[in-house]
Design a protein around this nucleic acid. Structure first.
Length: 591
RNA sequence: GGUCCGGUAGCUCAGCUGGAUAGAGCAACAGAUUUCUAAUCUGUAGGUCGCGGGUUCGACUCCCUCCCGGAUCACCA
């Protein structure tokens, strides 16, 4: 039984016995006691005053007294203003520790029988991944881990945007100026190579536009009439007609990009169970259009285009089918959603997509519900804010984009430099050192991004942001390595771990924190927020470091105390490992 | 202009469904190493929680006005 369950049950009984009344659930308010007061849990008396008809102090004293008398686990109580502070006994906390130590995979919830799909990453195949994608990938992967820890079966999905005008731009530029250049010959990752030609296209397109404007065309006309964009559109038409040469080139260049992406995904440590390609799904959704027309949810304009009118819901009219019969983004998404619900019995379908698409997903859900699909309620848009640089937003045309591969390489180098400067890891074999640099560099990056509430815009300063001290990944990784090191030594010395001794004050704090872990995992899962996990693990690591500083483990002469401290250490290490695992961060045995 | 999201210490961020004197880290300053790993720990300093109202025993938290920043309102995806 958790402390909260125990005490709130007792308060309810106390109210029943003292005042002959049922205390409503909402009136039983418990919180952790603030550090400056004596106690473990604090019950707020104000909501109970109506029942007791006494002052807050008197109510607290009466209820406190009753609880103390009737609850062996309660050691003492005190009342400060309207707050009843309750201190639980050492024996109770010891029991908690035993429970934690006796629970395998503590914090991981039992199978829920629910299936959840998390769609994330979903890149375009015309350029390499950048910092914004990193936030997406890390969030998506971590949320998937988090939901798995909540006992759900999770399908990680990636919808690759492999078709459309953007990839034709790269293809066209490569055809024109590539001279057969390939990733191997260029010595570049495939995605970077394709990105290079995308940039070349853009340059030429810009040049042609300004030329046209110089000839008196308007901005809009210039954008539409530039020969190179017409050529790209022509290429897209050929692709859609299945022209063999175009399709061949498309396959080749996409192949390069996939090889490049795979490498980046591997570096980031993210993976997928199911990959969808837009080239296979872009025609989906037309059936839904017909259905919507039949149900009179959609309507057709004179030109043949199909729309839905959402103005009654405070939104606008939304296009679903162009006059030429081709579908748009929304239509495709409706179709793919429907397809997925057919493929899997999904209890939740999560889209990890930036907040610039909040409107899109709002409309998507609304349309599905208007069509009468109950699945609409199961769709969740995990919306995250942009990553900004000190200079402001990332702009590809201004060259301020932070490339994902470069950033990862930088992080690993920083980890190497920092480790070397500290003279750490000298006794570790070179190969393992490299693994550690990777683990630490990525740990720093992942933690830095995931500790921030997803929906907030975050600032990333490449020079200063990523630290290795304080509230960072490496600090937690270090803490874990440190604990494992002590435990290894204990093992070498043949020392046994066992519960049974008295817990000191700091140990009670640690047990309390550990005991909160499962509840925190649930909350974070419900909120789809790895940030809660990150901040929890940091809290635990910090508490541990303070404890570790004050107390000796191996040198402790009392055998029972020493054995129990080893148990505490084991549990902290285990929870750190599980928590960091949810964040997709590996944790070293030594460093 | 409509809608949505944000505004907490110099900087980066926590603060759960309203609860006691608003918390960390970084940066600054002052300390602690014969260590079980100092990538550590302790202390000092740093705040009109964007502004103003309201709701109540109590508001960073809920409601309203306004200010600032961002996103979005495409026959792009």
């Amino acid at each position: 039984m958790t402390p909260d369950q125990l005490i709130s049950g007792r308060i309810a009984e106390a109210v029943q016995n003292l005042y002959r009344q049922e205390a409503p659930e909402a009136a039983l308010q418990l919180q952790a006691t603030r550090k400056d007061f004596e106690g473990d849990l604090t019950a707020v008396m104000f909501p109970l005053l109506k029942i007791s008809r006494l002052s807050p102090e008197k109510t607290g004293e009466a209820i406190g007294e009753w609880i103390r008398e009737h609850t062996p686990e309660v050691e003492s109580v005190n009342v400060v203003k309207g707050f009843l502070n309750i201190k639980l006994s050492a024996a109770f906390w010891l029991e908690q520790l035993k429970n934690i130590a006796g629970t395998p995979a503590f914090g991981v919830q039992a199978p829920s029988g629910k299936t959840v799909m998390v769609e994330y990453s979903s890149p375009n195949t015309n350029k390499p991944l950048h910092l914004g994608h990193i936030r997406n990938n890390l969030l998506g992967y971590s949320v998937a881990q988090l939901l798995e820890a909540n006992g759900h079966k999770v399908i990680k999905a990636n919808l690759v945007n492999d078709r459309g005008i953007h990839i034709c731009k790269s293809m066209l530029a490569w055809q024109k100026w590539g001279h057969g250049e390939m990733p191997q010959s260029a010595g570049m990752k495939g995605d970077h190579l394709v990105g290079k030609y995308y940039v070349l296209f853009d340059k030429e397109y810009k040049r042609q536009q300004s030329e046209l404007k110089g000839q008196g065309k308007t901005e809009e006309e210039a954008a539409k009439l530039a020969p190179i964009i017409l050529e790209a559109q022509e290429m897209l038409r050929r692709w859609e007609q299945g022209d063999p040469a175009t399709v061949e080139l498309w396959k080749t260049m996409n192949g390069w990009v996939y090889a490049g992406f795979d490498e980046t995904y591997k570096q980031l440590g993210v993976s997928f169970d199911k990959i969808y390609y837009e080239s296979n799904t872009y025609l989906l959704g037309k059936k839904i259009v017909e259905e919507g027309l039949q149900k009179d949810v959609f309507f057709k304009k004179e030109d043949g285009s199909v729309w839905i009118d959402l103005s009654a819901d405070g939104l606008d009219q939304k296009l679903l089918l162009r006059a030429d019969g081709t579908s748009v983004y929304m239509t495709q998404d409706l179709g793919t959603a429907q397809q997925r619900f057919g493929e899997y019995p999904l209890n939740e379908l999560i889209y990890v997509v930036g907040n610039e698409q909040d409107y899109h997903f709002k409309v998507l859900k609304l349309i599905l519900s208007k069509l009468g699909y109950p699945e609409s309620e199961v769709i969740y848009h995990l919306s995250y804010g942009m990553v900004e640089l000190p200079e402001g937003k990332m702009k590809s045309r201004e060259g301020t984009v932070v490339d994902a591969d470069d950033l990862v390489a930088d992080m690993i180098n920083t980890a190497r430099d920092t480790s070397m400067a500290l003279g750490k890891l000298e006794h570790i074999p070179a190969e393992e050192q490299e693994q550690l640099f990777h683990m630490l560099g990525l740990g720093a990056l992942k933690y830095f991004i995931l500790k921030v509430d997803p929906k907030k815009t975050m600032l990333f300063n490449p020079q200063e942001s990523i630290d290795f001290n304080g509230n960072t990944g490496p600090f937690i990784q270090y803490t874990h390595a440190r604990i494992r090191s002590v435990l290894r030594k204990a093992e070498e010395q043949g020392l046994k771990a066992a519960t049974g001794a008295a817990l000191n004050e700091k140990e009670v704090e640690l047990v309390k924190l550990l005991g909160n872990f499962p509840e925190m995992v649930k909350e974070a899962g419900a909120a789809h927020s790895p940030a809660l996990v990150a901040n929890y693990v940091y809290e635990l690591a910090k508490e541990f470091n303070q404890y570790y500083h004050d107390v000796s483990i191996l040198k402790e002469s009392d055998e029972a105390t020493r054995a129990q401290r080893l148990v505490v250490l084991q549990q902290i290490a285990a929870v750190i490992k599980t928590g960091m695992g949810i964040l997709g961060i590996e944790v070293p045995e030594r460093m």
